[in-house]
Nucleic acid binder design. Structure first.
Length: 659
RNA sequence: GCUGUUGUAGCUCAGGGGUAGAGCACCUCAUUGGUAAUGAGGAGGUCGGGAGUUCAAAUCUCCCCAACAGCACCA
């Protein structure tokens, strides 16, 4: 594009590729009006070179422009943000002495934090929502004013909005201070906003009240936060609310009780009582992982539960992790700690005896039962507990071996997730934090290797794996990969992790003898795949909504007799299926088949095998699968064949195919 | 840990200053019924724990515990 001689004109490129010239200073609204009246009416903002801007803002330089209408996905952010402002105005209209703080957009909605002596009640929410609809009805314009710091200070000072004054001070020098007003109500805000409050629409709902610390710092005052959700139209809102209901239905705490998998009780906050069926799932998962790590050349070990505090002082845990540790004292006044991590134990095993470079890499795995005194408010079913089992492993290797080991671990992690039907995986690389140990050269080297690995992970995945960088988020002892998986209803869970550790081998004085008979410090890699077996099972329950795959189901089939005449045959079917290695139970109770089907369906038995006179006579079975209303009749032999095939764990299936 | 809410039978929940109620589940009996609840009868709780107020508390007050939502935390 040639420079226009007339500096008063700018050139704007539209999404269709057309380029038009405008007088500099033209507003987005004027451009929209120039295109069509209806567009102008529907538009809520414009995007210039990727940045969302107020429709009324003038344009001073050329570039790619796009007019954003209310139905555009990018407008959703505006709807939510505007809704937050309306919420704040509503609250202050009802309770004028409430102070406002911040109200950002979040996933699915927005929130606003208020400082108020009395907490909000659910009834208050209804009242506020009503007031919000009133404000939206008024349909007043959002008006922006760019002011000096002094002006802004005067405005909020007069209003007594101390939090806004604090926010004002935090705005970096050189950045505009903007005030947005809707009628009489004014807020300090970066914007952008839609032209009027009316465009917020009616597809919103206040969801809940909660406490939240001012500026996210637990040393600060606790504010009252109101959460809301907002959407472009009623249908989207309805879908969202429906999704929430679905999520509630698959809550692992509810399903865990219904399926008789586990329970919690008051005397053991944060520790799991695994029932027979839940423990079966647990054991299936452990067996699977055990086969996988064997396949990948790990050796399983087991280190003590309780160790002298001296060991934890050496590892450093006693200093920086003590408030999270359970400790125990004996009669002779020795103090012990129940292990919160397995690493120190594994280093002891590494150190016991003299290690040669020929042995490396040493891959030590443990299904390590650890205990951590988690804050009471953090506990959440199986997802956050105080006692759990890590599928932990430590790889002791040379720095030359690091790259290959990271890739090997990556392969193990990704195949495991895919075996559990997790499709979307994000791998995040966290790099050196401010507080860290080790030399800069060491960090440089490790980060370079891991960046290379990260690139390779992405390249090899055919776009299935996304990668991200988390600068400064690494552990103090080394950079790490975090593996985040997305479940069936779109929630993200961080499970796997690969962490390079410069610190621990040194602290414990672990070394191996290299080619030149010199002592060398090994690189230690911490790695987990499921993270916590307990939590992973919680995630699986929610991911599958209780419909566990056959191979991991605690009870794979129930054989239900239709009349007592068929009881004997039912027992025979059970015996046959059990002999084939399936986990099967008989239901020969004096109940109707409808009753039995309902009951076993509710507890998510994958296959209900009904047998009556016909089946007994013909040597067949009638199978009804969970989630289906239909049944299939086949011979007992066919049933054994099809169920045993399906019950083969995915790794074994893979091995069979390869072999 | 912080803010708020909740805690009544195995589960879901009603009640509420004068010593507890429903449905489902459970037990018994009858029923032998073809794919999401057969009928009848019965048993079961002292109302999360402790202290206090009161003639009297499950119901009011205080303390503690646990759960739930969010925040903070999550090596």
């Amino acid at each position: 594009m040639a420079d226009n001689a007339n500096s008063k004109n700018i050139e704007l490129e539209f999404p269709d590729g057309s380029v038009r010239s405008f007088e500099t200073g033209i507003t987005g609204r004027a451009i929209a009006e120039g295109i069509s009246k209806s567009l102008a009416k529907k538009s809520v903002a414009y995007v210039l070179n990727g940045e969302l801007i107020d429709l009324a803002d003038p344009i001073h330089s050329g570039g790619k422009i796009e007019i954003v209408t209310r139905s555009d996905d990018r407008a959703l952010e505006l709807i939510r943000h505007d809704c937050a402002h309306v919420l704040a105005e509503a609250v202050q209209e009802i309770w004028p002495d409430t102070k406002v703080t911040i109200g950002p957009v979040i996933e699915n909605g927005f929130y606003y934090d208020f400082d108020r002596a009395e907490p909000f009640t659910p009834e208050d929410l209804e009242r506020i929502e009503k007031k919000m609809r009133e404000i939206i009805q008024r349909n007043l314009p959002f008006e922006k004013k760019i002011v000096s710091r002094e002006e802004a200070r005067a405005v909020f000072d007069a209003m007594g909005e101390s939090y806004k004054l604090e926010l004002l001070d935090a705005i970096p020098e050189g950045e505009d201070v903007k005030l947005y007003s809707q009628g009489e109500w004014t807020d300090l805000c970066r914007g952008p906003h839609m032209p009027t409050t009316g465009q917020v629409g009616s597809a919103f709902k206040l969801m809940s009240v909660a406490g939240a610390y001012w500026r996210g710092d637990s040393d600060n005052r606790m504010l009252s936060r109101i959460y809301g959700t907002a959407w472009a139209d009623e249908k989207q809102l309805k879908n969202y609310l429906h999704m929430l209901e679905e999520a509630q239905k698959r809550d692992h705490r509810k399903l865990g009780r219904e399926m008789d998998l586990f329970h919690f009780q008051e005397e053991g906050p944060g520790v799991v009582f695994w029932h027979a069926k839940g423990w079966k799932v647990f054991q299936q998962l452990v067996s699977y992982m055990r086969r996988r790590i064997e396949e990948h050349g790990y050796d399983e070990v087991n280190a003590p539960q309780i160790l002298d505090k001296a060991l934890w002082q050496t590892s450093g845990h006693w200093d920086w992790y003590r408030e999270n540790m359970f400790t125990t004292q004996t009669e002779d006044d020795r103090e012990f700690a129940i292990k919160p991590m397995n690493c120190p134990g594994h280093v002891q095993i590494f150190k016991n005896g003299l290690r040669s470079y020929r042995e490396l890499p040493i891959k030590m795995a443990e299904f390590g039962n650890v205990h951590r005194y988690e804050p009471s408010g953090a506990l959440h079913g199986l997802m956050r507990v105080r006692g759990f089992t890590q599928d932990d492993a430590h790889v002791f290797c040379t720095s030359e071996q690091l790259e290959a080991e990271c890739l090997r671990i990556n392969d193990l992690i990704l195949t495991t997730y895919s075996d559990f039907d997790f499709g979307d995986i994000v791998v995040k690389l966290s790099t050196r934090p401010e507080k860290r140990v080790g030399s800069e050269e060491g960090w440089d080297r490790a980060e370079a290797i891991m960046q290379k690995v990260l690139n390779q992970i992405e390249a090899e995945s055919d776009g299935r794996i996304k990668t991200e960088l988390n600068p400064g988020e690494g552990a103090f002892y080394g950079p790490k990969f975090e593996y985040v998986l997305r479940d069936a209803i779109g929630r993200d869970w961080q499970c796997g992790t690969t962490q390079v550790d410069f610190a621990l081998p040194e602290r414990f004085g672990a070394f191996y003898i290299d080619q030149n008979s010199n002592k060398q410090e090994p690189v230690m890699v911490h790695r987990a795949i499921c993270g916590s077996m307990e939590r992973f099972i919680g995630i699986l329950i929610e991911h599958y909504a209780g419909h566990l795959p056959l191979w991991i189901s605690p009870v794979q089939a129930v054989v239900a007799s239709i009349t007592s005449d068929a009881n004997e045959y039912a027992e025979k079917v059970v015996a046959t299926l059990k002999a084939a290695g399936l986990r099967v139970e008989a239901d020969t109770r004096n109940e109707k088949i409808n009753y039995k089907v309902r009951e076993h369906s509710l507890v998510k038995i994958p296959a209900i095998i009904a047998v009556g006179g016909r089946e007994a006579e013909q040597g067949t079975v009638s199978i009804r699968r969970l989630g289906s209303k239909h049944q299939t009749t086949m011979t007992l032999e066919e049933a054994v064949e099809s169920l045993t095939q399906e019950a083969i764990a995915p790794d074994l299936k893979r091995a069979a195919q390869a072999g």
